[in-house]
Simulated scan of single mutants.
Amino acid sequence: MTIGELAARFGLAPHVLRHWEAMGLLAPARSAGGRRVYDEGHVTAVAVIQLGKDSGLSLEQIGTLLSLPGARRELLAEHRAALRARIEALRASLALLDHAVECPAEDFRTCPDFAAKVDAYVSAPRAGRRAAEPAFG
């Protein structure tokens, strides 16, 4: 299949596949005229790249997974731990939002439960906290 056909199958622009090729994530065959030729193996490769991106892996990490079999378990274990921590932070944020939406107080900021969460957040150590983490996580 052509680059356009493969890209369309995933709702991607063809330049994305060319970028992934430049990064070494895809290696299409070439026709006699020099055009890229993709097969079902490339469909699987694009799906793996997309799944990795959906899970939060960078293209560099995906490249490591695809090219260095010995590094896979360690990289995946680290990413799994990071995802679990993020999920817990998001659950805590969701619980706080649920409370704020359902809080009987006129102003949720005056709610003792909300104030306790704010106090816990303010007193929590900042070392290691990433800016991307949700508040109250």
Rank of each mutant, 00 (worst) to 15 (best):
D107F: 03
D54P: 00
L76Q: 09
A124S: 10
S67I: 00
A131S: 07
V16I: 06
R36S: 06
D113R: 14
A116P: 02
L26S: 03
G24H: 07
G137D: 04
G137H: 04
L97I: 15
H42I: 05
P104N: 10
G24L: 06
E40M: 05
G33H: 08
P104E: 15
A89W: 03
S58K: 13
A27I: 00
D119Y: 04
A132M: 01
L97K: 14
S31I: 12
S31A: 11
D98T: 09
A131N: 01
G11A: 12
Q50P: 00
R91F: 00
P104Y: 09
R129P: 01
G33F: 07
P14T: 09
D107G: 00
W20K: 10
F108H: 11
L83G: 08
P125F: 02
L17N: 01
E5G: 12
E60M: 11
A135V: 11
L57S: 05
L17K: 04
V101S: 05
R80G: 09
D119G: 08
A95G: 02
G128I: 01
L68Y: 12
D39Y: 01
L76V: 15
Q50D: 10
V122H: 08
T110D: 14
A95E: 13
A115K: 15
R30M: 10
D98Y: 02
P112M: 04
P69V: 08
A105T: 10
E78Q: 15
G137C: 05
A13T: 06
D107K: 10
A7D: 02
Y121C: 07
R86P: 01
R80C: 14
L26T: 02
P14Q: 11
I62T: 07
A71I: 05
A45Q: 11
F10P: 01
V43M: 11
L6W: 03
